[in-house]
Lab assay of single mutants.
Amino acid sequence: MSIQHFRVALIPFFAAFCLPVFAHPETLVKVKDAEDQLGARVGYIELDLNSGKILESFRPEERFPMMSTFKVLLCGAVLSRVDAGQEQLGRRIHYSQNDLVEYSPVTEKHLTDGMTVRELCSAAITMSDNTAANLLLTTIGGPKELTAFLHNMGDHVTRLDRWEPELNEAIPNDERDTTMPAAMATTLRKLLTGELLTLASRQQLIDWMEADKVAGPLLRSALPAGWFIADKSGAGERGSRGIIAALGPDGKPSRIVVIYTTGSQATMDERNRQIAEIGASLIKHW
């Protein structure tokens, strides 16, 4: 067993022997301040990774656009098919120029040779490549099948209805392509620590998230040296922004954090800054 596999296998073990965790309302004060600064709703939840206990939450059962955070769930569904012998990570998928959609920095470079399922998941999570996500959605049967996968996990809230990039439209009061912070946090925890996926697939999923290259201005910008984070960000229309993450000190994750916002007129930089400040408060009061 590799060191990384050992780390993920012992996530519940280490967490069980940690000192009790206590909620700190100071972080919620910052979440509410972010709402004021952005002029928009902000949803927040913080779960203990081992027990699933909610440590703090704000608007945990209000719907927010998922945006690209759905790509972690998508690759979880792909990995479940791999575990069941219905898919192979090494299978190569070929596609054409007509398949390319807006923001496809990886797939646009491989029109000639195609990409493997493993490479597509890596591109979808680490670079948020939209064509990679659409190609992977095709392998599982489309958005409705991802929703069905989530329902089978016990998540009857999260739903995907459309493809990239239309799913980022974020129309107010439109339930399409949305989740709730509580539902997303619980589902992410199941994917990373539950028995739904094999140990190898859980490790692969967290490795992809740990290698995320496009979430630097968010929670990662607030992390002290030595902290662990595996995350996936999302951005959408109407001032929408979000991030889902597993993080913790001492090089291992111990909490799940989900943050979503929508309806702001603020710039992307300002949305990023507010999420980073929430992260800084979380870490300060850990």
Results as ranks from 00 to 15, higher is better:
residue 47 L to G: 01
residue 134 N to F: 07
residue 189 R to C: 15
residue 98 N to I: 07
residue 36 D to F: 14
residue 227 W to C: 05
residue 60 P to G: 08
residue 175 E to D: 02
residue 41 R to E: 15
residue 87 E to I: 06
residue 165 P to I: 01
residue 49 L to V: 02
residue 284 K to I: 05
residue 269 D to N: 10
residue 209 M to H: 03
residue 224 P to A: 11
residue 200 A to K: 03
residue 215 A to F: 12
residue 228 F to A: 15
residue 158 T to M: 13
residue 247 L to Q: 14
residue 180 M to S: 13
residue 261 T to W: 14
residue 74 L to C: 02
residue 217 P to W: 06
residue 78 V to H: 05
residue 176 R to W: 07
residue 271 R to G: 14
residue 238 R to A: 01
residue 193 T to A: 09
residue 170 A to G: 08
residue 194 G to C: 04
residue 246 A to T: 09
residue 46 E to N: 04
residue 202 R to D: 02
residue 176 R to S: 00
residue 188 L to R: 15
residue 208 W to L: 04
residue 62 E to R: 06
residue 51 S to R: 03
residue 269 D to H: 10
residue 97 Q to T: 02
residue 270 E to W: 00
residue 87 E to W: 05
residue 185 A to T: 13
residue 174 D to R: 07
residue 67 M to P: 04
residue 278 I to N: 15
residue 240 S to F: 14
residue 69 T to W: 06
residue 174 D to F: 08
residue 210 E to P: 06
residue 153 M to G: 04
residue 131 T to V: 07
residue 118 R to T: 08
residue 76 G to F: 07
residue 209 M to E: 07
residue 100 L to G: 07
residue 206 I to H: 09
residue 40 A to R: 04
residue 170 A to K: 00
residue 106 V to A: 07
residue 24 H to G: 09
residue 99 D to F: 09
residue 286 W to Y: 02
residue 217 P to A: 01
residue 126 T to F: 02
residue 251 G to C: 14
residue 227 W to V: 06
residue 243 I to S: 09
residue 253 P to G: 09
residue 69 T to M: 13
residue 66 M to E: 02
residue 255 R to W: 03
residue 75 C to D: 01
residue 75 C to L: 02
residue 103 Y to L: 11
residue 32 K to T: 07
residue 118 R to G: 05
residue 61 E to F: 07
residue 44 Y to C: 03
residue 133 A to T: 00
residue 261 T to R: 13
residue 269 D to P: 13
residue 33 D to N: 13
residue 115 M to D: 11
residue 148 A to H: 07
residue 261 T to N: 13
residue 122 S to R: 09
residue 216 G to R: 13
residue 94 H to Q: 05
residue 164 E to P: 00
residue 65 P to Y: 04
residue 145 E to P: 10
residue 189 R to I: 14
residue 30 K to S: 15
residue 249 P to W: 11
residue 225 A to H: 09
residue 199 L to T: 09
residue 104 S to V: 04
residue 43 G to S: 13
residue 202 R to Y: 04
residue 29 V to P: 12
residue 144 K to P: 01
residue 68 S to M: 02
residue 260 Y to P: 07
residue 70 F to A: 15
residue 112 T to P: 06
residue 57 S to T: 06
residue 233 S to T: 00
residue 96 S to T: 07
residue 239 G to T: 00
residue 268 M to V: 14
residue 121 C to S: 00
residue 47 L to N: 01
residue 36 D to P: 13
residue 76 G to W: 03
residue 35 E to V: 02
residue 155 D to M: 14
residue 133 A to S: 07
residue 105 P to C: 02
residue 77 A to V: 12
residue 226 G to L: 05
residue 91 R to S: 03
residue 265 Q to M: 10
residue 257 V to Q: 13
residue 268 M to C: 15
residue 155 D to R: 08
residue 201 S to I: 00
residue 284 K to A: 03
residue 64 F to L: 06
residue 189 R to W: 12
residue 180 M to W: 06
residue 109 K to D: 03
residue 167 L to P: 02
residue 186 T to K: 01
residue 156 H to S: 10
residue 231 D to Y: 09
residue 279 G to R: 11
residue 30 K to G: 15
residue 167 L to K: 00
residue 96 S to G: 07
residue 236 G to P: 15
residue 144 K to L: 05
residue 248 G to T: 04
residue 204 Q to M: 12
residue 129 D to W: 02
residue 126 T to I: 14
residue 71 K to P: 06
residue 206 I to A: 12
residue 34 A to M: 01
residue 151 H to F: 03
residue 81 R to T: 04
residue 183 A to W: 11
residue 99 D to P: 12
residue 209 M to Q: 09
residue 137 L to K: 01
residue 168 N to Q: 14
residue 168 N to S: 15
residue 35 E to N: 09
residue 230 A to W: 13
residue 208 W to K: 02
residue 226 G to F: 10
residue 109 K to H: 06
residue 44 Y to K: 02
residue 108 E to F: 07
residue 26 E to I: 13
residue 65 P to A: 04
residue 118 R to C: 02
residue 263 G to I: 00
residue 196 L to P: 06
residue 140 I to E: 09
residue 24 H to T: 11
residue 93 I to H: 00
residue 47 L to Y: 03
residue 130 N to H: 12
residue 221 S to Y: 15
residue 73 L to S: 01
residue 207 D to C: 04
residue 27 T to K: 05
residue 285 H to D: 00
residue 274 Q to C: 14
residue 154 G to H: 02
residue 37 Q to F: 04
residue 163 W to I: 10
residue 200 A to S: 07
residue 252 K to I: 14
residue 227 W to F: 11
residue 212 D to A: 13
residue 158 T to V: 10
residue 155 D to I: 15
residue 129 D to R: 01
residue 161 D to N: 00
residue 184 M to G: 09
residue 140 I to K: 07
residue 272 N to D: 14
residue 76 G to M: 08
residue 33 D to T: 10
residue 220 R to G: 14
residue 31 V to I: 13
residue 42 V to N: 13
residue 65 P to L: 06
residue 78 V to A: 03
residue 235 A to T: 00
residue 249 P to G: 07
residue 40 A to H: 08
residue 54 I to S: 06
residue 103 Y to E: 12
residue 136 L to S: 04
residue 221 S to E: 14
residue 244 I to R: 12
residue 122 S to C: 03
residue 198 T to A: 01
residue 89 L to Y: 00
residue 105 P to H: 02
residue 124 A to S: 06
residue 98 N to Q: 02
residue 121 C to P: 00
residue 51 S to C: 01
residue 58 F to V: 03
residue 30 K to T: 11
residue 192 L to S: 13
residue 82 V to F: 05
residue 207 D to K: 06
residue 123 A to C: 01
residue 172 P to A: 04
residue 275 I to W: 11
residue 242 G to I: 05
residue 249 P to A: 12
residue 275 I to N: 05
residue 273 R to L: 13
residue 91 R to M: 09
residue 66 M to R: 02
residue 94 H to A: 06
residue 182 A to M: 01
residue 195 E to R: 00
residue 188 L to E: 14
residue 265 Q to P: 11
residue 274 Q to M: 12
residue 101 V to I: 14
residue 56 E to L: 09
residue 109 K to P: 02
residue 215 A to Y: 15
residue 183 A to R: 00
residue 26 E to A: 02
residue 29 V to R: 02
residue 210 E to K: 13
residue 57 S to M: 03
residue 195 E to D: 03
residue 209 M to V: 12
residue 187 T to K: 00
residue 47 L to W: 00
residue 25 P to C: 00
residue 31 V to Y: 13
residue 77 A to F: 12
residue 90 G to N: 05
residue 279 G to F: 15
residue 157 V to G: 10
residue 159 R to D: 15
residue 257 V to H: 15
residue 44 Y to Q: 01
residue 122 S to Q: 12
residue 284 K to V: 07
residue 25 P to W: 05
residue 209 M to N: 02
residue 61 E to Q: 05
residue 44 Y to D: 03
residue 202 R to A: 04
residue 203 Q to H: 10
residue 86 Q to G: 09
residue 119 E to P: 03
residue 100 L to K: 03
residue 272 N to V: 07
residue 270 E to C: 14
residue 218 L to S: 15
residue 60 P to R: 04
